[in-house]
């Protein structure tokens, strides 16, 4: 299978202060992130707030500028793409946003919202666009009467369907979904997750799925990358990561998730302390301040990503291939 997306050593530095009389300060939001997504595959980035997962997604669509590294979409490096190249990138990579209330322009009708990418990227006539819009409405489980209404007349789940229809209308190969279900109620969340899975099969889509919710990630992904403070600490096949987590952070994260079954209550591996401020990350392995197993080397050296077995890569000094 072909790689739809390859990300290599991606870095992003944000300037957070530095006016006329201030010292310039930077935050390393993303530090050296590498991963790839194959055709028809879902790769999830999972992590807690401030881990850089959303920034990574926005770097790939170039909503923020790349500081360093490569982003290869369909065999072409777009990390520094400009103008028409950038427009082309944004036709083949579409986004689904977290908040279906905020990501749809309240002044536009549903059919105009969904047709917008067509207006931007194609020279189709109005009739041709409308035809595609009606088809798309059907595909995402809405019907034709909805086309002439405004987004605020819909519930959260329906709005997210509109957002999905808009993302799919240009027939992109890669969809970046940034927490697409976290603003929705549980019963609606499963509708949308099922829809995303169905669409993936139908159109052979690849997803970069960004989420903090491990149960959702396990359900939707083929492969997973766990992020902590701007780096991927562990990545690999979903089954391997969820059944046999190797990095201490992955272990703690999985153990922290409350499971909706009271018979499975268990002693948790509760991490001490807070997530460090990304402005001022710890030296060496960024996780060492909370890691129960940390040793001296963890404080000094940044661990390198190592292939541990054929399914998993881990960045930890204490995990070695056997």
């Amino acid at each position: 299978m072909n790689n739809i997306l390859v990300v290599e050593n991606l870095k992003k530095k944000f300037q957070i202060s530095g006016g006329l009389f201030e010292k310039k300060e930077f935050v390393n939001a993303v530090m050296d992130v590498s991963f790839h997504i194959k055709e028809g595959e879902t790769f999830s980035l999972v992590g807690e707030s401030g881990c850089g997962k959303s920034t990574t997604g926005r770097l790939i669509t170039r909503l923020v500028d790349v500081t360093e590294g490569k982003i290869v979409v369909n065999g072409k490096d777009v990390a520094q793409a400009k103008n028409s190249e950038l427009t082309h990138l944004r036709e083949s990579v579409q986004m689904i946003f977290q908040d279906p209330y905020a990501s749809l322009n309240p002044r536009m009708k549903v059919k105009d919202l969904i047709a917008e990418p067509l207006v931007i990227h194609t020279k189709l006539s109005k009739e041709e666009r409308d035809k595609l819009v009606y088809e798309m409405l059907e595909i995402v489980g809405l019907n034709a009467e909805h086309a002439n209404r405004y987004a605020h007349e819909f519930s959260g789940g329906q709005r997210q369907r509109i957002g999905i229809a808009r993302a799919l209308i240009t027939k992109p190969k890669l969809i970046i979904a940034d927490e697409p279900v976290s603003a929705l109620d549980v019963s609606i969340q499963s509708q949308i997750l099922n829809l995303l899975k169905k669409l993936q099969k139908e159109f052979n889509l690849s997803y970069l799925f960004i989420s903090h919710d491990l149960s959702v990630v396990e359900y939707i992904s083929h492969r997973v990358g766990v992020m902590y403070l701007g780096t991927i600490v562990e990545q690999g096949d979903k089954e391997a990561i969820f059944k046999n987590p190797l990095h201490p952070y992955t272990k703690a994260l999985l153990s922290s998730v409350p499971i909706a079954d009271p018979t499975m209550r268990k002693e948790k591996m509760v991490l001490k302390g807070d997530i460090p401020n990304p402005k001022n990350p710890p030296s060496g392995c960024t996780f060492h301040t909370r890691c129960p197993l940390a040793t001296d080397i963890c404080k000094q050296q940044i661990p390198k990503m190592k292939q541990i077995n054929d399914k998993q890569q881990v960045a930890c000094h204490l995990v070695n291939e056997n």
Binding site: Q189, S190, K197, L214, I259
Partner: peptide, 23 residues
């Protein structure tokens, strides 16, 4: 319906059950 529509870790369902419609 609510319990069945929540994905559980280690369950590996192909499709989630969901409740149709909305509140």
């Amino acid at each position: 319906g609510l319990i069945r529509s929540v994905p559980k870790i280690g369950e590996n369902k192909e499709e989630l059950d969901s409740i149709k419609g909305q509140v």
